[in-house]
Amino acid sequence: MIKSQYIISILLFFPLLLIQTTIVPLLAIDTVIPDLIIILLVYYSITQGQIYGSLLGFTYGFLFDIITGSLLGSAMIAKTMAGFTAGYFSSENKQDQNLVSYNFALIVLLSSLIDSTINAFFSSINFNSNIFLLFFQYALLPAIYTAALALMGMIFYPKRKMF
């Protein structure tokens, strides 16, 4: 019997992708945009565990690649790794702490950083220029923006499980 949690986590992806591809580009700060999907992925990875986080990241990546026309496999690898990383913080005794404290934003930052870095790698960018500058622009800035958004979401978090 498939838990309803699992189905909800997949279904939530679609409205989020809708927002990601229509509204989020309007929030771009000099082409740096946050990744809402990572926030959802981190939430489920913390609440459901590392294996589920990896599987969900894989599924989100597949759907993202297929729907947006990106290189199929690139977001799959990036989001699988991001889900796996976020799953490290899913231990039962610290789960609530990680969801309601600023830890959540830090986990989002870490996962988003991994996601953006892997995506940048697959984008075959010219790495002849300053690699630290590229890392800053391609990975760190989007990750910080995503984490900041997660932090804002934390303010409205109802201090109990939403789904």
Binding site: Q50, I51, S54, L55, F58, G61, F62, L71, L72, G73, S74, M76, I77, T80, M81, F84, G87
Partner: peptide, 25 residues
């Protein structure tokens, strides 16, 4: 098990990466 699942998923992703231009995809 966490690492085994991760490795399997990454292998599947890499296989799909090489299938980008296939008709089915």
């Amino acid at each position: 098990k966490e690492y085994i699942v991760l490795v399997v998923l990454l292998i599947v992703s890499l296989i799909l990466l090489s299938q980008n231009s296939s008709q089915g995809i």
